[in-house]
Each structure stands twice: as C-alpha cells, then as structure tokens.
Amino acid sequence: MNFVIASEILLWIAVIALGLLCLALARQIGVLHERLAPAGALTLKQALKVGDPAPVLALTGLDGREVRIGGLREGRAQLLLFLSPNCPVCESLLPAIRSAQGAERDWLDVVLASDGEPQAHRQFVQAKGLTRFPYVLSEPLGRTFGVAKLPYAVLIDEQGRLAASGLVNTREHLESLFVAKEHRVGTLQDYLQQRDRVTASTGDGRG
C-alpha cells in the first residue's frame, strides 16, 4: 500500500467520523424538537368548543362582495383573523398572515375581520396591501366566537367545525393553530396535558 492510498483511507475514516458526528447532532436536534413545548396560541374561555359546528354567517365584505363564514365550503378550511387598525401587534402579524395564505393556499382561505367605521378600515386595507383578503366588519361575528382580545384567530375545518382558536401574537402562535388541527387537539393546553398523560403512563422520563 503506498503513501497516497494510505492517506486516502485515513481521510475517508475521518470523513466517516465527521459524518457520524453530524448524524448524532442531527438526531439530538430531533430529540430537542420533541422535548420543547410548542409556542401555541392561548385559547381564552369561549362559548364555542373545539369540534362544535361553527355558526354559518353570510356577511358583506368591505369591497361589497358576500363573504360566507363557516359551513361546508368545498373541502376548504377557513381562518378568521380578528384584528384592528390601531393594534400594533396585529400589524406585526400581517407578514405571517400573507405567508400563511401563500403556503397553505391548497386548503385554506383567510378572512380578516374587525368592527367599527368602514372608512378607517378601508385606509388600513390600502395602506397595508390587504386588498386580496376578504375583509368583513361585524360585531356579531366577534361575539359569536368570543373574541375578547386582539389579534385573535379562529380556524374552521373543512367540515365547518371549529378546529382551533386563540390569541395569536406571533407567527408561531398562528402556526400552532394549524398544528392543533393537524393533530386533532383543541388547544395548546390540551396538547400539553395529553402529552404529560402519555409521558406519565409510558414512564418515558427523557425530559
């Protein structure tokens, strides 16, 4: 065996060692992913429970078009985001809403909702470039879903049932609603309780 082949073999052994190190680190990141509690939307006390049929409402949007809330909508889910033009957190959430609408357009329609004078909302829509979203003004809509604080989001599934809802201050909170729907848990609190019960029953004490 000459020097070059011997050094090549040693180099490949070093690459294998580094690859194993990468693999171990990637697996460790996976374990951390499982251990970390998700940042989820805080669900406030509400009249409608997850799984209940959402009320079907026919409202008129700011642009004069009819916006149908709830009910069976050709297999599409619906996200209602309650916001206000004078709510800074709502403004900071708008990029997340735009990207969520783009990323989840296969199954989700986003509707923005608020109440008050239409003129202020029209200016808000123009200033923030929200013309592609249906935008409704309806106080009864907020009352129906028990909206007490903003920004608040309600996710209605493809069968017209309430899938998840909560106070959404960040992109992670918003995405937690999609995850809650996906995992068929009502709220983050339910998820954590469920996980703790499973951990206790299986005796998995990795945490």
Binding site: I9, W12, I16, G19, L20, C22, L23, A26, R27
Partner: peptide, 16 residues
C-alpha cells in the same frame, strides 16, 4: 470507506 462516508452523510441529511 468512501461509500460508507457518503452513506453516513446521506443519513445525516435525511435526519436533518
């Protein structure tokens, strides 16, 4: 050894 190295790197990529 080169094949094993490629395979281990592939597994790391798959995990990530």
């Amino acid at each position: 050894l080169a094949g094993i190295a490629l395979f281990v790197l592939y597994l790391a990529f798959d995990t990530l």
